[in-house]
């Protein structure tokens, strides 16, 4: 095959080659047009709209000023960042532990059971998940009533803490945990038993093995999973919309309000909030890339 392509390269006159190459780009036209119409154009409108006064259509920075100084919107941002940091952190650590415990289990049904359970529950998110938690931990939810009757704990039933920040974290962790199990399992499978044995035969303790071999090898996968979980929680809309619209102030909910709803329509502000969200996400991705570059250098 290599021979054929080399011959082809020799046989083609350079000029012909260039014409063919340019024609080949035409084949990408449908894909590029689609992505232009449904990715770039919406983002362009959003970016431009964030600098326009909603009523007058003139250039303004007031949308960003509102987004970054009005406590209402600033709090939404902070809440969004906290909920994604916390649930991604808990998800990464506990999810990693769960995946590790499952993989090292001697019983094969435990291993396949955890993977199957994770696959199903990772896809069970959004509105139905919110309703499931209302039925479980809402004020008349089964578990809250049970906790109150049998142990006298009325953490959920009276105050309905489900609709506050902590409750939201519990719901988000429900889909973050299984997602983490699925994300980290391939990397954990890559940890060779021989490395552990080699380290042990050189006298390394379990702590030393994890400190110097296990965790450094896993680091890129752990960091990537953390970033993905954070993005997952940061952009989540359906779950919090169905669970506690109006109780918990998050940026995606604010954007939804501003374009569809109860507050007077202010698309300029919504665009500014959305742009800031993307800037944050891009920042996270950039930080991850830098981190990854550094860790790769160490592994080699």
């Amino acid at each position: 095959m290599a021979v054929i392509s080399v011959e082809q390269k020799i046989n083609l006159k350079p000029k012909q080659g260039i014409v063919k190459k340019n024609l080949a780009w035409l084949g990408l036209l449908p894909f590029i047009l689609f992505c232009g119409a449904f990715e770039l154009l919406p983002m362009g409108f959003m970016l431009v709209g964030s600098f326009l006064d909603t009523k007058k259509g003139t250039f303004t920075l007031s949308n960003y000023q509102d987004a970054l100084t009005k406590p209402f919107y600033l709090n939404a941002f902070l809440n969004s960042i906290y909920v994604s940091l916390i649930t991604a952190g808990v998800g990464t650590i506990l999810g990693g532990l769960i995946a590790y415990s499952a993989l090292t289990s001697r019983r094969s049904w435990v291993r396949s059971g955890v993977i199957t359970l994770s696959n199903v529950t990772a896809n069970f998110a959004g509105v139905p998940l919110a309703f499931a938690f209302v039925a479980t931990l809402g004020s008349t939810g089964l578990v809250s009533v049970f906790l109150e009757k049998s142990m006298g704990i009325d953490f959920f039933s009276k105050e309905s803490n489900l609709y506050k920040f902590g409750g939201l974290c519990l719901v988000y962790i429900y889909f973050q945990l299984p997602l983490m199990v699925l994300l980290i399992t391939p990397a954990l499978k890559g940890l060779r038993r021989e490395w552990h044995e080699a380290a042990a035969s050189l006298g390394a303790s379990i702590w030393q093995y994890w400190r110097h071999i296990g965790l450094p090898v896993l680091f890129p996968a752990l960091a990537a999973s953390f970033v993905l979980l954070m993005a997952n929680a940061f952009g989540a809309y359906a779950t919090v919309y169905a669970l506690a619209q109006g109780y918990i102030n998050l940026t995606p909910i604010q954007i939804g309000f501003l374009i569809n709803g109860d507050v007077a329509l202010n698309t300029g502000l919504a665009n500014a909030l959305a742009t800031l969200m993307i800037v944050l996400m891009a920042g996270m991705l950039f930080a991850y890339q830098q981190l990854n570059k550094r860790s790769r250098r160490w592994i080699r």
Partner: peptide, 24 residues
Amino acid sequence: LLEFFTLLPFIVPPIVMALGLIRI
């Protein structure tokens, strides 16, 4: 180039895309 286009929907949450899509 294609990979860039397939990464965008990961970075940009649907709620954000909805904003621009409604406008256009």
